[in-house]
Structure formats: C-alpha cells, structure tokens
Design a protein around this nucleic acid. Sequence first.
DNA 1: CGCCATCATTTTCATATGAAATTATTTCAT
DNA 2: ATGAAATAATTTCATATGAAAATGATGGCG
Lengths: 171, 171
Amino acid sequence: MPEGNADGSPQSPSPFHLEGFLPYLVHRVGSRLAEGFDEGFARAGVSLPEWRTLSVLFEYGPMTMGDIARRTSINASTMTRLIGQMEKRKLVKRERPLANQRTVFVRILDEGRDKVEYLIPLVLDYESELSACFSPAELQTFKALLTKFFHSLTADADTAGRDAPSGRLAG
Amino acid sequence: MPEGNADGSPQSPSPFHLEGFLPYLVHRVGSRLAEGFDEGFARAGVSLPEWRTLSVLFEYGPMTMGDIARRTSINASTMTRLIGQMEKRKLVKRERPLANQRTVFVRILDEGRDKVEYLIPLVLDYESELSACFSPAELQTFKALLTKFFHSLTADADTAGRDAPSGRLAG
DNA sequence: CGCCATCATTTTCATATGAAATTATTTCAT
DNA sequence: ATGAAATAATTTCATATGAAAATGATGGCG
C-alpha cells in the first residue's frame, strides 16, 4: 500500500502549486462552466459553440468565416464544420460576395434568430445565477480583468514569432 | 453582396452581448492560454494534461485516479488513458492497495519527477510573462476571484439535481 | 453467509478537435 | 498582362474527448 497522503498536504516542500497557477485557475473554471451546459441548450437543439456562433451573427449581422471564428474563439476548421451543420438545418446561410470570392459571408436565418431569441433570457438568468457569489462590484472587476487579460494575450499572440524570443507554455 | 457590417457595430439593438457574458469571457481566455502552449512542453515531451497530472502527483504524492481527475479538472475516462500512456513511458506507476482494491493509486516515478523539475522554472517564467499586464494587486485579486468562482461553481454542482430546480446553461 | 446497491475504474462508442495539406481566389511585382 | 506570393476557406488525417455501458470490488442488510 502506498505511504503517500491523499489528504491535501504537500509531501515535500515545493516552490510550485498548480492551484495557485493562473492558467490552471482559468482552465478549471472553464471546465466547470462547460460541464454546466445542458438542458436549456439541448431543449433548443443547439450546442454551445453553435449558440456562440448564432449569438454573434444575431448581434453583428453577416460576417466572414474568419471573423466569426475570431470573435467566438473557435478554430477555423471547426467553424467550417459548424456552419455546414447549421446550414443544413436552415439556421444560417452561406453567401459568396461577388467582389472578393475568396471570402464567405454567413447570415443568420429566421430559424436561427428564433433560437437566439428563445435562448437569450435563459442565458441571462443562468449568468445571474452563476454570478450570485459576487457583489456587483466584484463582478464588474472580474469581467474587466478577464477582458484585460484576453486583450493582453491577443497582443502577445499578434507579436509572437517576431519580438518574442522564447518558447511558450501554458498550465 | 451582403449588406451586413463586419466592423463591430451591432446591426440591431439587442439586450445581449456575447463579449460581456461571463462564461464566454472565461472561455476565450482559456482558448488563448491553450493555444499558447507549445515548445517548452514539446521539448520536455509531455502534453498539457500530462504536465498538470505530473505536477499534482509531484506536489501531493500518490493519489487515486478519481482524486487526480478532480484535482486537475480532467475527466475520468481521459485520466485513465492519460495515466496509461504515462505508465508506458515510466513516468508514473499504478498501485492497487491491498485494502480497497477498487481504487488505484498512482505514484510519480523518477523520470516523471525529472520532467516536473525541468518544467517548473519554465512554467513560472511563463506565468510572470503572462501576468505582466497586471499590477501585483490586480493579479492577486484576479486569482482570488477565479478561485472564489470555482468554489461557487463546485458547490452548485454538488447540490445540483437536489436543490436546484432548473436546467443549466453555459455560454 | 450471500445477495444487492454502490462505488472506482476502465472500456466502448460516437463525435469533436486542431494542424497541416489542399483548393480557389486575389494581390502584387515586374 | 503573367507568374509568384499571399489569403480564405475547406478537407484530410490522426488524435482527443466525454457519456454511458461494462467490469471488478466493497459494504451493508436480510
């Protein structure tokens, strides 16, 4: 039988704790949030990435594949497949502009709009339930920090390979 | 050509903005962080989930499959496969305690320890590079909020299906 | 003691994923 | 104009994923 301790006390003094490590703190919150996704979306018949995509198209109007991918933080290959599936179900429609036929614009259709309008109040309720653990000020701070962090990471990525000398890691 | 605008201005006034929505703010930071993962880990020959697993075993000593899964926020099926691969590479070792043979303890081996010791300084450097956009106070607040949020989500999950009446959603 | 409900892990299965190669189009330099 | 490089989307390919079923072990409870 192993003599190790499963109770939470470190076995040997170590300069590193995963649970104090920023990328991991983000990861585990993300995992929990993803697990929480279920009935509401299932009832509406859309997946989480589909909801994200539809809500962006609903809000901003037709956009190119690349722009949708960027705005939703979904990979471009995945986005192609996602739009393909949603096109079959008449939630969205692809359009190739005459000028610049490299690009493909995606437009939300009535059925897609219906889904978004059905989901928005559910999603807002869900958010307030989630954030009940925060005061309004904390929530605002938290969102601001997440946004700032994202933009900083984006700027890093934009300049990576040019300025940045060293390999990158994430925890 | 579509008349929609791809510049960022909302097409119609709407009560919902994905980019102000808490679960999405977390998601996109998580995506960026995951994209940033590369050379350092590749050089050490471990994946991101492997690193997380090893660092937990390094820090806390032998643990059961379930405990590792919980502590790393990695799904149990995935964890079984992950440990299987790491066992082949002699990074860890499975042990079945005589008392309670349902459980499997996993112990980190010397090669695994070497990898962790090699990676820790890289990972700490990476974190300070990432968090350069924050003041020390902001960073502390940010981590505290992430931790608080995680524990709140965990508590919700623990009581879901008993107390909680309604379906859940994530954005 | 022996059966049943529960628990921890593993396996199966269907699906989702991202990197890299491919296709189609446009832009740029000459 | 013409070919070469760049860009946008898609497809291919190998791998990763989680839910649910299956397996193996334990802990009551009659």
